[in-house]
C-alpha cells in the first residue's frame, strides 16, 4: 500500500519539470554469449534509430508507435537502474531484448547462444566534448531452449 502511494502521489501532484536539465543519456547494448564466463567485445546497440525517418512515417507513428514507446520505457528502466538498481528494471530490459531477438530472423546467433547480457553506455556532455562511458553490466541471463524455439 505504501508503494502504491509512492507511485501515485507524483502523478496527482506532478512537478511538470520537463527537460529542466538535459541529463546524461543511457544506451542499451546487448551481447549473446556462448559459454558461461565468456568475455565478449561484440556488443550491439539495442534498436538503433534509423538514419532517416520520412515525414510520412512520422505521421504514421502518431497513431502506431509501439516499438519506439517501448524503447523509451526501456530508457526509463536504464535510468532507474543507474539511480537505484532493481530486479524489475533489469528483468524488463532482459525480457524485452529477448523478445525482440526472437522476432528477428537476422539473429541466427541466437540458436547457438546460451546466455544474454546487456550493458549501459552513458552519454553526457563534459564541457565542450561529449563523453561515453560504460556504467553498468547486467547479470548474465541463461537462454532457455523454449525461448529459442519461438525464433
Amino acid at each position: 500500500m505504501t508503494n502504491i502511494f509512492k507511485l501515485l502521489l507524483p502523478t496527482l501532484f506532478p512537478s511538470w519539470r520537463f527537460f529542466d536539465v538535459i541529463a546524461p543519456s543511457p544506451r542499451i547494448q546487448y551481447a549473446l554469449l556462448n559459454a558461461a564466463g565468456e568475455i565478449t567485445e561484440e556488443w550491439q546497440e539495442f534498436r538503433p534509430r534509423p538514419a532517416h525517418l520520412p515525414f510520412k512515417q512520422m505521421l504514421q507513428r502518431m497513431v502506431w508507435n509501439p516499438d519506439w514507446n517501448e524503447s523509451l520505457f526501456l530508457t526509463s528502466c536504464a535510468e532507474r537502474l543507474l539511480e537505484k538498481p532493481t530486479t524489475h528494471s533489469e528483468d524488463e530490459i532482459l525480457n524485452r531484448i529477448m523478445a525482440d531477438l526472437r522476432k528477428t530472423t537476422a539473429h541466427n546467433h541466437l540458436n547457438t547462444a546460451t546466455q544474454l547480457q546487456f550493458r549501459l553506455q552513458l552519454i553526457q556532455r563534459n564541457g565542450q566534448t561529449i563523453e561515453q562511458e560504460i556504467v553498468f553490466y547486467s547479470r548474465i541471463q541463461p537462454i532457455h531452449k523454449d525461448e529459442k524455439r519461438w525464433s
Binding site: S25, R49, A51, H52
Partner: peptide, 15 residues
C-alpha cells in the same frame, strides 16, 4: 542542442 545531440529522443540520426 544537447537534446538533439545525445539524448535518447530524436527519432533518426539525421535529426
Amino acid at each position: 542542442s544537447d537534446v538533439f545531440q545525445f539524448s535518447a529522443y530524436p527519432v533518426s540520426d539525421a535529426l
